[in-house]
């Protein structure tokens, strides 16, 4: 998602249609009728699933007798049992740990490169910028499953041109699909798919800065690099914060890449990422109640992360503006 400021539109003073003398029909019914499709879909596919998940997460199956026959299994209130199970589940902890490591590798690298590319695109001394911009943005058009397929083959020593070269050089490079390398393998796929998009967000933000600011700095004798670091980066800080936030949320939900890579490697378990664990619990183990509790925990952690991050960053980066 790209992010740029648009303060005008959200201000409450935006002139709206005056309908002071309007009837109840035109004042209330018309707007709500026009909002109805959106509201109905929101309730059906966002609000209801969330409420239903909450409801499921407090239930469990009770087996009476031998568990045979139709009446032997019943659903009972479970209190916080499912949450306790989730939070004490070592598999869940391990999957969260893996995803954190993955995020620590991916996010700084992806945003750092995106920022570097955006600044270089913005520099007047760069040539072939149009070609590079299009090429770097192109992977955004490739869905995660297909990029995982492509990279998956590029990681396979039998097919990979990299291993062909390593082989000729006589180097013994361990496969990225081995258990030690697989986190890097997935991070690289996400980097490939995401760097261009984030670059465009930052570049768009850079373009909105009036260039006289730079001219003034240049007259004062600032070098291109100084201008980039001291002026450009702070100006586009809000865009960087938003890209970081979206990247963090995406990281916690990683699912498509590891799921697609699984057939190519033995080092990805069915619980590699938290969402893979939820999927396995819900569909392979038929334990929808603990899957529901785990989903709620993931959602809450995501929220907590986002809010915490925004607060910390806002204090640091924008505190002086108040």
């Amino acid at each position: 998602m790209t992010v740029t400021e648009a303060p005008v539109a959200t201000r409450s003073s935006t002139p709206t249609v005056r309908r002071g003398r309007g009837t109840f029909r035109s004042r209330v019914l018309v707007p709500y009728a026009m909002l109805a499709p959106g509201i109905i879909l929101f309730v059906a596919f966002m609000a209801a699933p969330i409420v239903y998940t909450l409801f499921l997460s407090f239930q469990k199956t009770k087996v009476s007798g031998l568990g045979l026959g139709s009446g032997a299994r019943s659903t009972v209130f479970a209190g916080i049992d499912n949450y306790v199970t989730t939070l004490t589940n070592t598999e869940f902890g391990a999957s969260v740990g893996r995803v954190l490591v993955y995020g620590f590798i991916l996010i700084p690298l992806m945003l750092g490169l995106a920022l570097l590319f955006a600044l270089l695109l913005d520099s007047r001394r760069t040539r072939a910028a149009g070609f590079s911009r299009t090429a770097i943005f192109l992977p955004y058009a490739v869905p995660a499953v297909i990029s995982s397929l492509l990279w998956g083959f590029l990681y396979l020593p039998a097919v990979s041109p990299f291993y062909f070269v390593f082989d000729k050089l006589g180097w013994d490079v361990p496969s990225l699909l081995s258990s030690g390398g697989v986190t890097f393998a997935i991070a690289n796929i996400a980097l490939w798919g995401g760097v261009g998009f984030n670059m465009i967000v930052m570049y768009t933000s850079l373009k909105s800065v009036p260039s006289d600011i730079y001219e003034a700095a240049k007259l004062d004798g600032a070098s291109e690099i100084q201008i980039a670091l001291r002026i450009k980066v702070p100006i586009i800080a809000p865009a960087i914060v938003m890209t970081a936030l979206f990247s963090m949320v995406a990281t916690l939900q990683v699912f498509a890449e590891p799921t697609t890579l699984r057939p190519l490697t033995n080092s990805l378990s069915t619980s590699w990422s938290p969402l893979m664990l939820v999927y396995r619990d819900a569909f392979t183990r038929d334990d929808i109640y603990s899957a529901a509790a785990t989903s709620i925990v993931i959602a809450l952690v995501t929220f907590a992360f986002s809010f915490l991050f925004l607060r910390v960053v806002q204090k640091r980066a924008f505190g002086q503006e108040d």
């Binding site: 209801a48 699933p49 819900a282 989903s295």
Partner: peptide, 15 residues
């Protein structure tokens, strides 16, 4: 906007 769509997928299935 903040609710990750991926997390909704499983409850959407059950509904």
């Amino acid at each position: 906007v903040l609710v990750p769509g991926v997390i909704l997928a499983i409850p959407q299935y059950f509904l």
